[in-house]
Design a protein around this nucleic acid. Sequence first.
DNA 1: CCTACCGATCGGTAGG
DNA 2: CCTACCGATCGGTAGG
Lengths: 217, 217
Amino acid sequence: MARPRSAGYDDQRDLILERAATLFAKAGYPGTSMNEVAEACGMSKASLYHYFRDKDDLLVSIADGHVARLEALVDAVMAAHPPGEARARALIERFVDEYADAQNAHRVLTDDVRFLPEETREAILARERRVVDGFAQTIAELKPSLGEDGMSKPLAMLLFGMINWMFTWLRPDGALTHSDMGPIVADLFFGGVGAVKAPRKAAAKQRAAKRITEKEI
Amino acid sequence: MARPRSAGYDDQRDLILERAATLFAKAGYPGTSMNEVAEACGMSKASLYHYFRDKDDLLVSIADGHVARLEALVDAVMAAHPPGEARARALIERFVDEYADAQNAHRVLTDDVRFLPEETREAILARERRVVDGFAQTIAELKPSLGEDGMSKPLAMLLFGMINWMFTWLRPDGALTHSDMGPIVADLFFGGVGAVKAPRKAAAKQRAAKRITEKEI
DNA sequence: CCTACCGATCGGTAGG
DNA sequence: CCTACCGATCGGTAGG
């Protein structure tokens, strides 16, 4: 076995990931320099390159780490709840809470993964797809006719839209908290999903739904 | 691409704005160079600077032009429909159609305005605020108790979330079109809005709603 | 011969 | 409207 890393190695890595996520979330990936990341971490740029091969490696670590947690969260909720509205509500409320604790990483996932080369991006998109599928399946269980019409994935994406967009306007210091918003989003979505009808040419829509493969969260 | 023979100053400006919006939407504002914009327009970088003072001037023109059209659209719908669900539906469906025709400009508005200096950004945010207020007012007309609880703005933002996020996942070549999605979003929203209850401490939420001033579309 | 860094600078390219 | 540049900063790496 290889010689173990120094005691603080993983702690330093985690610190860098958190500071970099904050900067990327604020100024975007191309708008953030490695010099700025190094400065925010109180270390030289050369030290930064001791922990991460290059700038892309930083981005991958932030985004993949976050989406892996979301993936695990979906698996845990699916295992803990039988099909039905309780499962769907748990999914939404757990997601909103998870996002609230990882706002910077989430913004990096939704905004900056597109800057990665295709091969690197693909592994992250695969995890995103599993997360979307978990939501789509839960929606189809709730109202099977939507699943048959190929509407469960588009509806899952509308749901993600409400949740993802929240983090651009909800003030962390406001009286309305992320935890308040979980039940509101769930009420709106489950109250409304009964009123949704698929447009005509349902077969074509089902084919269309299969094509939704990129930028899924 | 060949330059149109009789292109005047304004035509050249519009061409540059469209090409620049396409590039900014794809690679982000900091990720796009003026050299790339010039090349996409078939002109030298120096020529570009004949039409726009600097890079920020390009961004402002794209974003402000787009949000000004949205503002005018809200005013037109409010003038054409009395308060009620017909007004709200018209607002949603007209917005989705407008976005579909201006996807690049819309992405620039939502993603890149944050890179402008504060004074420049403020004029654009003021227009965004007017658009959000139009939606929030329409929601409050539909269910006055939500307005009294300070929930009409948060609900307007959830609605914008569904619509804005659509443009990250809906395939322009898919069988499911933007026009299909307008009624679906409206059904989901109006079906669900009846089920939404404000969280406790409604007075505090009203104060919170007032603080929602940035990044409102 | 390893790790954990440092000060300084590399070749290229950004906006203007 | 182009070529030729500028001050500065980019991502990444040298020797010690």
